[in-house]
Design a binder for these strands. Sequence first.
DNA 1: TCTGAAAGTTTTCATCC
DNA 2: GGATGAAAACTTTCAGA
Lengths: 152, 152
Amino acid sequence: MPKTLDDIDHRLLALLQQDSGRTLAALGDLVGLSPSAVQRRIDRYRETGLLRREIAVVDPSSALLAVCLVTLDRESPESHRSFREWVQAAPEVQQFYNVSGDHDYVVILATSGMAHHRETAERVIKNAPNLRRYSTMFVLDPIRTTLTVPTR
Amino acid sequence: MPKTLDDIDHRLLALLQQDSGRTLAALGDLVGLSPSAVQRRIDRYRETGLLRREIAVVDPSSALLAVCLVTLDRESPESHRSFREWVQAAPEVQQFYNVSGDHDYVVILATSGMAHHRETAERVIKNAPNLRRYSTMFVLDPIRTTLTVPTR
DNA sequence: TCTGAAAGTTTTCATCC
DNA sequence: GGATGAAAACTTTCAGA
């Protein structure tokens, strides 16, 4: 249970989401806290599950990104379940959302090029049972790619 | 200039994109290299710009995510430029792609709830000059949210 | 209960082989 | 690519507010 976060917590979380490579001392300077106080707060974020992990970000311009919109044929739970499992098994699936509206899923594929993309789309999406509709938008320019979410 | 990456580089980069919290010793064990050799490789990734930074990942289920598809009215460079600037200025814009196909842009908004979303969509997107079409898919379940890209 | 400071431990960095 | 010593960071503990 995340206890109520104060203003310093929000600033700290925003900083960590932008760049977690800073030292505790540097973070402390930025928010006005001692390094140990900063560390205690970060520990709490991890314990409560608010902070999941740290990752290294690779330059996305070296990859081919594609946003795929998927609609399945029916609302049968089995077809959704098997579709999810199939998609989740693919390492090329960078993001995978169940969404509201005309489509059921948004799948963002990250591949090394068009040949790899075609192979992946074929294997991961087009082979899905009960696939009704499927469209692809290729990313021409990844203007911003973050995972930042607001904490308040 | 990324020199040609060998197999160990690819494995190292995959590990770092999954979780960069590991020590050099742990990484070395996983790929069969000494800690200092691992460090040299990581330094090279940073120098060449392949590795941009490290970030902390906050649990996305605490936020309201929305995938917005945007089409502008004309191909006038000015309207695209001003739209980009306007969108880029908003901290709620988690991802922002220029894409091929019927739509011009995909914008993923991360907000604290529906009230925040409506305010943000109004401010960031609906006020755009030359906005032709705009649709929103709310994320019901963020099944996978990574920034992983293939390195080969 | 939370903060800040200091001691002990681990990791990282630079140089050498 | 590996190994070593030096520097830096992190973790733990403890005293104070």
